[in-house]
Simulated assay, not measured.
Amino acid sequence: MSFNASVYRILIASPGDVADERAVIPEIVNEWNAVSAYSTKIILMPIKWEVNTTPLLGGRPQQVINDQIVKDADLLVGVFWTRIGTKTGMAESGTAEEIQQFVDSGKPVMLYFSQSPIDPEKIDIEQFGALKKFKEKMRTKGLTETYSGLVDFRHKFTRQLAINLNNLIDFLAEQLKSKGKEPSKKVTEQQKSAVIELTKPTQSETEAYLLKSFEATVRPDGWADIAAFATHLLTYTPIKYRDYGHNKLKPFLQSTGLFEFKSISKTQTDITLVEKSHKNA
């Protein structure tokens, strides 16, 4: 049965040393389409230069790629390991130029850096040094992600792609408004609600995210300020505790049985892991 859907182009950008990841990303995108396209009314189209560009003379090679696939893409997935790529005359590499074009346009970028081991003798020192500088520059522009191997990448990208779709829906709605076109609020909200439903973490995933936020904000004395914890939790993880029917953060955390609480004042509370969490960590 046919249905109307929004089609979003997902640009895959990377140097040549992450061929496995470049193959996995379209698989994950197509899995999303198979499972979620009908319920969300969203179809994702993976775009790669080796598949979606055509030969054309008369311009700078990277500019031809930019004109053919980059400018009309909606979301970019960038992946790096030990190389940054070949300089284009305008940027450190073609991938870097594509990322910069997205950043300048305000479009969403999902950026991943592999921590997979490699034989030191196979590392191009110049490329690796340039990549390190680029990585530090990107960290000043937003949140990047690392992964330890292909399995870890698949897991992280699968969930984070779904989470970022809501950001993409909001971005494209704003783009339409800026052009004097009013997006369908009903359709937009239905899509976002469907995506949220699909991205709710399981109980075990929820606990893992809670522990991750605690580890990121814990002080040397073993306690963490609940306000700092909440900021990390709601900024860097997909946990939205209000989705679980809690009006405040503290009751939600108490319901998990993972934390102990210490009241410092009427406005400040600290949390620490209970003993059983220490044993399971």
Rank of each mutant, 00 (worst) to 15 (best):
D67K: 13
G78W: 01
I43D: 02
G180C: 01
I47P: 01
A208F: 09
R219M: 06
Q68C: 05
V218N: 08
I118S: 04
K262Y: 09
P183L: 07
T144D: 10
L111H: 00
F229H: 02
Q62L: 04
A230L: 07
K141T: 01
T144G: 07
N66W: 06
M138C: 03
S255M: 02
Y8T: 08
R159W: 12
I28K: 09
R9Y: 09
A224S: 10
S184M: 08
E121R: 15
F153M: 08
G106M: 04
A281H: 15
G85H: 05
V29T: 02
D17F: 04
S213L: 06
L172S: 10
V109G: 10
E126Q: 08
G257E: 04
I28G: 04
T217C: 10
I123Y: 09
E174L: 13
S2P: 15
H232T: 08
N4G: 12
P15N: 00
I99Q: 04
S265K: 09
Q190N: 13
V35L: 15
D243K: 12
V35F: 13
P238S: 06
N33S: 04
K262M: 09
Y209R: 14
V195P: 08
S255C: 01
D119Q: 02
E205I: 10
V79N: 00
T202M: 14
N66C: 05
A130G: 14
V274C: 13
F80E: 04
N167V: 04
